[in-house]
Design a protein around this nucleic acid. Structure first.
Lengths: 348, 348
DNA sequence: CAAGCCAAGTTTAACGTTACACACTCGGGC
DNA sequence: GCCCGAGTGTGTAACGTTAAACTTGGCTTG
């Protein structure tokens, strides 16, 4: 299916408006009008131009368009890792919501790296983006604020008070408290918390840890630092390692609350591979409400944020900032969550 | 952290080279030279310019750069769904490999939709891309060839003979055959194949089905269409439904070979939730070698393609087409795979 | 000491697109 | 017969960046 080429046909060559115009015997503007569906083009002319476009395989050059328009219609979704089921599902929803608003999503992996997070925030990089939805991990509020500097920004995850952008979050502390309270209600007394990322870490982790402590307090149980191991990342492997170490210890827990579903899946695996029964010997609960947790064996009890709601609100707020150049004070939206009780904590 | 703004400070305003130049008292080209690290700038001048850049928060406009350069450094990775663990893992690797080559990856979800696949191929859309790595699902070779028309293209997955672009694949038929042969070798006699997407579907599925049939043939077993249900998508839910229906039938299988890990996870879930034991009552094997399969309970036997190799080769070949305008005949690279035997087929 | 050369800049002209202002040609109303 | 407006279409300038050609002045070199 060879394409016609008015000029020299260099390898990567693509026809421009000008080429189409020449071939169709009209001006560049008329072709542009046809392409954009603008008025003031007769049916006959339109037909002729469309023929040529079809014939030479013209596709508008989005770089030129973006330059002209001053915006690209692309928003970045900056997350630690796309192969974390929660982020994969969230990414899918973000793309859906963005598409509904006529935007495209560019996924950027920050891997919890300061420099990569900085780059995502500043908008450095080969793709022009109009703003971003950002899940911070390495950077604190002040740094985020400094680097983003005026770019439309929506932050995912808890923030104490005013953030450097709009915030969409769930009640991390409440969700964690409910999950742990549920574990305690089923008679567990040594509940481990897996996911504390020592040091600054994400605000989310701190909230979930706070929820854990609150649940213990309400039940009149002491906080035991020995039941709260550090993890290097929120992966299945780290969950297995951390839970495994606890289970191999002198005073193993009778329940594990993992700060996300990846860790929880790892914890379940650690228990089962040691011949322990879940939930009889050790109950496991997670956070994220991923599909993976649902299909885990046993199915995983988990705190499920309203992911679609998060995606919808994030894209809506970001869109407002972009199109309206919205200068109103930053808002925080807290989406709902649900404790999905499954067999990993209550058995059959 | 307010930024200095020479002109009027409209909401979405960002400083350009010109603004920096004015403020620094040099020409635009000098600023450009500083930014790009080009020579012929004195240390003093460089210093002064960098100061201003820092002060006003200048970030290069990539639309203008891309327009000027005629390419964007962005490649698209078009897949059916990012929340399929295999694609999520592959996406991560693609991004890593691309970054090593100085490129960025834009993930596009086609959802097995003809129109979305067409858009990905033509490069329509707000983001300029230099080419794409494409996992076809709805479109056949001729259509792919027509729509891509000269764009650098790497196809993922089996193709009979010459494709409309470079091809990176694994031995789907061989992998499937090995997996099924393994099931048969453990004494299974009624092996179901879950994943046949009736109609055209992906070439991969057909190859895996061919491998399944080949293994049966080698073992002298008849092909039973009743053991090969259709699925609507390669998801956990479809795997559960398809396997569930088989297990609830009059002549349930004693093993299930699922065409990907998502389906396999669903199949395991279907079996366990019916009180069946895996692998004692029904063995389950998958395809993809995802991390999720490894952490499944019981851990899932799966055919693991060399995903990193796939990502590396795909990006390398695509890069060659882009930078060298490579016009050599299309090549096909077949990456290795490994049958990872785990407890879902052999027990303890 | 003229010729040449180098470093440190500047000027110019694109890349492809589109907003805006302008031009032309018909019919029809007065 | 002249003007007006609607319907079509064209020309110009600008978006921000950079390759390439050009300028300037100081310094080496034969």
């Amino acid at each position: 299916m060879p394409r016609e080429t008015p000029g020299s046909a260099r390898p990567g060559w693509r026809p421009s408006l000008k080429d189409v115009a020449t071939l169709a015997g009209v001006s560049v503007m008329t072709v542009s009008n046809v392409v954009r569906g603008a008025p003031n083009v007769s049916a006959a002319t339109r037909e002729r131009v469309l023929d040529v476009i079809e014939r030479v395989g013209y596709v508008p050059n989005s770089s030129a368009r973006n330059l002209r328009a001053g915006r690209s219609g692309v928003v970045s979704f900056a997350i630690p890792a796309i192969d974390n089921s929660y982020f994969a599902e969230l990414a899918r929803l973000m793309m859906d919501e963005a598409a509904a608003l006529g935007r495209t999503v560019l996924i950027e992996q920050t891997k919890g790296d300061r420099e990569l997070e900085r780059r995502a925030l500043t908008g450095y990089g080969p793709t022009p983006t109009d703003g971003l939805v950002f899940f911070p991990q390495a950077l604190d509020g002040a740094q985020v604020s400094q680097y983003a500097a005026g770019r439309p920004l929506v932050l995912l995850g808890d923030r104490g008070g005013q953030g450097p952008g709009d915030v969409v979050t769930v009640d991390n502390e409440g969700g964690a408290r409910e999950a742990v309270a549920h574990l305690l209600a089923t008679g567990r007394r040594r509940v481990a918390a897996v996911g504390d990322p020592r040091g600054p870490g994400t605000e989310n982790s701190h909230r979930r840890l706070a929820g854990y402590r609150a649940a213990l307090r309400q039940a009149g149980l002491p906080f035991d630092a020995g039941l709260v191991p550090a993890v290097a990342s929120y992966t299945r492997a780290q969950g297995e390692a951390a839970a495994g170490a606890l289970l191999d210890g002198g005073q193993p827990p009778d329940a594990v609350f993992a700060f996300n579903d990846m860790l929880a899946v790892g914890a379940v695996h650690a228990a089962l591979s040691r011949g322990l029964r879940v939930p009889e010997d050790v109950a496991v609960a997670g956070f994220d409400g991923t599909d993976e947790a649902r299909y885990c064996n046993p199915p995983l009890t988990t705190v499920a944020p309203d992911k679609r709601g998060i995606a919808r609100e994030a894209m809506r707020m970001l869109g407002d900032r972009i199109t309206r150049g919205d200068e109103t004070p930053y808002r925080t939206v807290r989406m709902g969550h649900q404790l999905l009780v499954r067999r990993s904590t209550v058995g059959r």
